[in-house]
Every structure is written in C-alpha cells, then in structure tokens.
Design a binder for these strands. Structure first.
Lengths: 208, 208
DNA sequence: TGTACATCAGTGAACGCGCGTTCACTGATGTAC
DNA sequence: TGTACATCAGTGAACGCGCGTTCACTGATGTAC
C-alpha cells in the first residue's frame, strides 16, 4: 500500500497505488482554484498522472467524487472545531479559538469550504447525523462559555447569528471583498468583536 | 423600438427589436437557477428565440454579458437600499427597512446577487465609484441612525460586521442551510436582532 | 522457494454532446431624394 | 407618396475544443499450491 508514484510524472509503475486519495487531493486543489463548477475530472486525472477512465475504479462518477470531497471537508471542519473547543484555557478563550478555527479552515481549505457549501448533500447546519455537527458544537460552546445565558434568548438563536457572521466574513474574505488596508481590522478581529457584541447585545432587540 | 416578438416562440419578425434586454433577462433567470458557472449562452439564446450568434451583435462575448448583468444587479441593489434609506419613519425604522431590502434583494434576485459576487469586476465593498456604493449607504445609515456613535468604535467597523452578517444570512438562506422549522425565527428577524446586538454591544470587545 | 493463475487497477481509443465563437449571408428597417 | 439604397440585426452552418463516460484490453499484484 505504499505510494508507487511519488509525483505526477513519476511512472515507474503501472498501478498508482494511492489513486483514490490522490484524486481527492487533486479535486480539493482545483475546486480551491476554480470553484466546484470549474472542477473537471480530466484535469484531476491529468494532475495525478492517470487516464480519466481510471477514476471510475474508485468513484461512480464526477458527482460521487465531489460528495466524497465535501464529506471529508465536513469531517475536517468538525474535527478542527472540536479540537479548539477542548483546548486549554478559559471557556472564552476556547470559544474564541473556535471562531478562529472556522475562519482559518475557510482560508486554508477553500476547496473543502466550497465543496461543503456548493455540493448537494453537504449540510453544515442543524441536522441529524451520527457525530455532532459544526452547528451542534457551536451551540454547545456557547452554552458552556456563557452559562448565565443570553438574557432569555435561545442559544440556538445566537448560534445562528454567530454562524452567519462567520460564514459572511469567510466568503467575503475569499471573494476579496473585505478591505485589506492598514488600520482596518482583519476578519479575525471582526469576528471576535462581532461575536462578543452579539452575545452581550442579545437582549437589545427586546429591551429596545 | 416596440418589442416585435412577444414570446420566445413568436417569430413574426426577422428582427427581435429588444434582444439586448431580453438576453440580460434570460441570463438573470439562468444564473438564478444554475449559478454563474452553469450559465450558458446557448441556453439564453434559445430561451429568447434567437441564434447564439445573434448575441454577438450586442455583447463582446459571454464575459461581457455577465459583467452587464452584475452591473445592473449592483445598480438595482444600490437603488433599493437608497430607497429604504430615504423612506418614511424614524431613522431606526428606515435602517431596519434597509436590512430587509438587502435580504429581499438576495432572495428575489438570486441571479443578480450571484452575478455580483461571482463575477470578476463586480465589487460590492468599499470602492471608488461615481455613485455611493451599498457599503457607503450602509455607513451613512449607521451614522444617521445612531448619532451618538458606537462607544468609540469606527462606524465602518460596525458596517463591515453588519454587512458580513447580512451576506452570511442571505447566502445560507439561499443554500437552504437555515432551519425553516416552526418557532425558529426567519432571516429577517435574525438580521434585525443581530444588527441591534452588534450596535449595542459594540463596546463589549473592549469593556470586557 | 517457485510457479500458475485469479484479481483488479489502469490504459487508450472512442463516443456523443454542448459549449463559445467565426463567418459569409440575408432579410427588414428606415432614410434620402 | 414612392423608390433606391445604406445600415445593421439576425441566420445558419461550421469550427475546434474539452467534457464525462464506456469499453475491451493489458499489465502488475498477490495468493494458492
């Protein structure tokens, strides 16, 4: 099971040995560069150094490969968030770290992030799954970080707002729409301050 | 300059008479259904009842048509926001109406919204343009609605957060990721409460 | 340890398709006289 | 009002291209004896 070819041009063996993983990796790269719609089986096969037909030994087709990528991205994101949530420090520090992990994931793994949100079947929000979803983790983190609650507001309400803010910052940043000039705080600072404001200002909509 | 054909199958004239507008309209529809990447000149021409080649009498090519759509969407959005901002009522009512207008635009004109954010050259954020951009309108609205300021925080900082929250809610909603179950507030309520929280909790990141 | 052979991962040629774009053309419009 | 004609919007055929997918095949692997 060792990799037989070390690079795309290395053809020392008829069998690739690690083709499935290599194709997923290639898809991740191309999706990051061109989006889900711009991703092509032919390109992925070429990058890996294999005939397009070889792909069908490992996937039912293009859509199946995309679903696999989205699934892995989803798992990766959940793991990162869970790791941040169980890291050292005060609850607030861990919660802050979780937000940073979300933005960092979107920035470092744009292929995964796009696959998750643009592929059919990839649901990030509230859902019934085996393991806790990112959204579940967010609700959990909010509750343990702010045990006094949010002025009577449902934690899931706050979680949706925090998630929307995070997603908005991540996608605007990826689209190059956030200003990058000096003196303007970056998305990490925007998220940190925004989340605190959302939490502390939760009752504002009611009290006036 | 009256329209010669009333429908796609109506071929009572050799000349279309209103082809440019009809093509933009068709593009808007297809982008809404399939995204910018899934939009096709051939489909647009077929829907309008014209040969694909006819398109080149009005646009340099596919990219030029997309840019035109994005530009119109941008203008439409700016007009809607400006209208809300100058409508009747208290500053807070007008500001709230502005947020609703943004979400409504994304929902009612998904083709425009996608074109704006996915097409090269379409910038929604801070920019140097002739007319005030949506972001400029947002900053202006914040300042006039909350003349006492935001605890020393730059209004543009708040504006970025409000915009990110709006964009996040709009895109999550379009992707079907927001829960639609009973008892869960919709995106309009989420935005209204979120914006108030962001405004009133602006100083939270500093004071605690 | 050596050999026969089943398994199966990858090949390469081919397919049908729809795409964006070009080109010489043609038919309708609308203006000059 | 009628006619000649320049303008130009749309036609239709063709192009080269890259796509996803299929198929019979072949070469390497690894197991049974």
């Amino acid at each position: 099971m060792r990799p037989w070819r070390e690079g795309p041009g290395d053809r020392r063996s008829y069998h690739h040995g690690n083709l499935k993983e290599a194709l997923i990796e290639a898809a991740r790269r191309f999706i990051a560069e061109r989006g889900v719609g711009g991703f092509t089986l032919v390109d992925a096969a070429r990058l890996v150094g294999v005939t397009p037909a070889a792909l069908y030994r490992h996937f039912r087709g293009r859509e199946a490969l995309l679903e696999e990528v989205a699934g892995r991205g989803f798992t990766d994101l959940a793991e990162r968030l869970a790791r941040a949530l169980t890291s050292r420090g005060t609850p607030l520090e861990r919660f802050t770290r979780m937000g940073e992990a979300y933005l960092a994931f979107a920035e470092e793994e744009p292929g995964y992030y796009a696959a998750i949100f643009e592929t059919r079947g990839g649901h990030l929000g509230p859902q019934a799954a085996e393991r806790p979803s990112p959204f579940d983790l967010l609700v959990e983190a909010l509750q343990s970080t702010f045990p006094d609650g949010f002025g009577g507001v449902d934690p899931r309400f706050i979680a949706l707002e925090v998630w929307a803010l995070s997603h908005g910052l991540a996608t605007l940043s990826a689209a190059g729409q956030l200003p990058r000039s000096q003196g303007v705080p970056d998305k990490y600072e925007l998220l940190r301050a925004g989340v605190l404001a959302l939490v502390h200002g939760a009752g504002a909509a009611r009290s006036g």
